[in-house]
Design a protein around this nucleic acid. Structure first.
Length: 263
DNA sequence: CTTGTACCCTGACCGC
DNA sequence: TGCGGTCAGGGTACAA
């Protein structure tokens, strides 16, 4: 569910919790290995995004890393419909933080040393230049869409934004990375940046109404779903050329693209 | 090293 | 209403 823009929106929505002290920790899922005794009494010193991870730095230098995977969200206070899916609650001196995750694929891990998560370059940062993307793309025969989604190389792009960026760049998702010209790499680079920036501006993509669908930490929907050109539009007409949008499988995931204008 | 597949888990939706 | 199949914003452990 959540990709870089959704995680970024979530983190921004939780900033006012920094400085809060953890008073109590409730774990409701055996799959989560959270050392409650190490958390209680600690203060949330910072809340930030690292790739698709949400990292809560604690006052003793340790940190709590949350990965939302497919259906997780962090909310201020679980609503009645979210109650039964609340897997972890941090009760704070000023408010509370609930980890809601219907599918239970999300992860929460405690890091004693608080070192950053090991992931690739953040595509929203200045260091993510077209040269940098070129080095990643030119060095592999893997399909460009798979490369964009490889978190060890680039951290934060998922299934929606990989598809949308390639549509914007007019590149066929099946093209081997190696086959892209310098000009095409520049187009992909520019598309990735603008699509992510716009999605952040729209506060993420909310696809449906179910409890598994992404919401902001406030519970509100995002707005980028109105801007989707290919994702989830199988068999509909391309907004640009009218060709029927196609859905194929790549790396076990659905890829949506327009066979008419993506080459 | 690469690529592909199964799997983790739950819920929604579709056709019969 | 029920049943079976498919699909889902992700990532990992394998096998080939």
């Amino acid at each position: 569910m959540p990709e870089l823009p959704e995680v970024e929106t979530t983190v921004r929505g939780l900033q006012d919790l920094t400085g809060s002290r953890i008073e109590r920790v409730a774990v409701n899922d055996r799959r989560l290995d959270v050392p409650r005794e190490r958390l209680v009494g600690r203060v949330l010193s910072r809340i930030e995004r690292q790739g698709k991870y949400i990292v809560c730095g604690l006052s003793d230098g340790s940190s709590l890393r949350v990965h939302l995977r497919m259906s997780g969200r962090l909310v201020r206070f679980a609503s009645p419909s979210e109650r039964k899916y609340t897997r972890l609650s941090l009760l704070l001196d000023r408010g509370r933080l609930d980890f809601v995750d219907p599918r239970r694929l999300g992860t929460v891990e405690y890091s004693q040393d608080g070192l950053p998560v090991s992931v690739g370059i953040d595509p929203t940062e200045r260091a993510f230049t077209r040269q940098r993307l070129g080095a990643i793309v030119s060095g592999s025969r893997a399909p460009i869409k798979v490369l964009l989604m490889d978190q060890r190389r680039i951290a934060g792009i998922g299934n929606i934004y990989a598809a949308e960026a390639l549509f914007a760049a007019r590149i066929d998702p099946r093209r081997p990375g190696k086959s892209l010209s310098t000009k095409e790499i520049a187009a992909v680079h520019s598309a990735v940046r603008s699509v992510l920036a716009e999605a952040i501006r729209k506060l993420g993509t909310t696809l449906g109404e179910s409890v598994s669908d992404y919401r902001q930490s406030s519970g509100e929907s995002g707005g980028f779903q109105e801007r989707l050109h290919v994702y989830s539009r199988n068999r509909e007409a391309c907004h640009r050329c009218g060709t029927t949008i196609d859905r194929i499988k790549q790396g076990g995931r659905s890829t949506y693209f327009c066979p008419g204008c993506q080459r």
